[in-house]
Simulated assay, not measured.
Amino acid sequence: MAKSARLDDFRIPFFDGDKAGKRVSLADFDAGAKPFSAGSKQADRERLAEYAVKLDEMQERLHAQRRERVLLILQGMDTSGKDGTIRAVFHEVDPLGLRIASFRAPTPDEAAHDFLWRVHRQTPAAGELTIFNRSHYEDVLVPRVMGELHGAELERRYAHIRHFESLLADSGTAILKCFLHISKDEQRERLQARIDDETKHWKFDRSDLEAREHWDKYQSAYAQALAATSTERAPWYVIPADSKSHRNVMVAALLLRVFEGLKLEYPPAKESLKGITVT
């Protein structure tokens, strides 16, 4: 890991209530940077393997204790690696106590409720680590880019999100939000790879190309959303994601820091079990 790089260098400044204050530009973050790389893809994989074992132990303590909750939110442009991050970072974690929730376009039933209704139902229970593959942030991104949400209503949604995440934090949920920052050139290569490889056609959707046509608008929408919703209890981090191995290492390092901050321990030994011999 580069000595000069700190995880908090990639944290979005906390929202302070001043809409005209802190601005965020994703152009200030190099999607191709690898500040937390171990030096090579193989070295990154080895480091990730170490982190994965530690995450498994931490998650087991979380599940055994059944008191705290952990929520990891992954957002990013198409092909930024949300699915790949989940596969790589959590491959050692016991599925017991781990849950993944994905959010696509709202169903008619979901659209008939407030935009947070479908999300609140998927938040982690006590002792659970939950990963959001996309999230409630879709509802301040897509509608904004499409011109359906702006002005006062957009600001209200940002406020609802801040209050919602504050409620989760008050209820014992540790929240980590990662924006997987991919460059437009890297996205083009990954999309083309899906088209050229027949075994990857199932991953490709023409809507990905439509979204790409609005690249600049999405970058602006993300920047605004990150600035308006990064808080001390639910911070946003920008993860340089052109390198898949670096992306995975950085997300794992951040999540380990969250777990370590919880100071998790196994439940106390049961006095009633002492001296029992199984025959």
Rank of each mutant, 00 (worst) to 15 (best):
L226K: 10
F259C: 02
P240D: 14
A112S: 12
H246D: 12
V93C: 06
P235R: 07
W215G: 13
W236Q: 11
T79H: 04
F29H: 04
D56W: 04
R6W: 09
Q122S: 13
D8V: 14
F179C: 08
R6C: 12
E68R: 14
F90H: 00
E210C: 01
K54F: 00
K19T: 07
H214P: 09
L256T: 10
R99Y: 00
R69K: 10
E148P: 00
V258K: 08
R6S: 15
I182C: 07
E210I: 15
I12Q: 15
F10N: 08
K41T: 13
Q224Y: 09
A101H: 13
E265Y: 03
R134M: 09
L180N: 01
Y158H: 06
V145C: 07
E265P: 04
R99V: 00
R206F: 15
K177Y: 08
Y222I: 14
E68L: 04
E265D: 13
L98A: 01
K177Q: 05
R156C: 03
H160S: 05
D208P: 06
T107G: 03
E46I: 00
M58I: 06
G84I: 04
E138N: 13
H136R: 06
G84N: 05
A111C: 08
I161D: 02
D94Y: 01
G147S: 04
Q59P: 14
I182W: 09
D83T: 06
A31L: 05
E128Q: 13
V140D: 13
G81R: 00
R247I: 10
W202C: 10
E265V: 10
L7R: 05
K82W: 01
A31F: 06
L209R: 11
V251P: 09
E50A: 14
S183P: 11
R194Y: 11
R233D: 09
L71W: 02
L72S: 05
V89C: 00
F14I: 11
W236M: 08
S40Q: 12
K184A: 13
F179P: 03
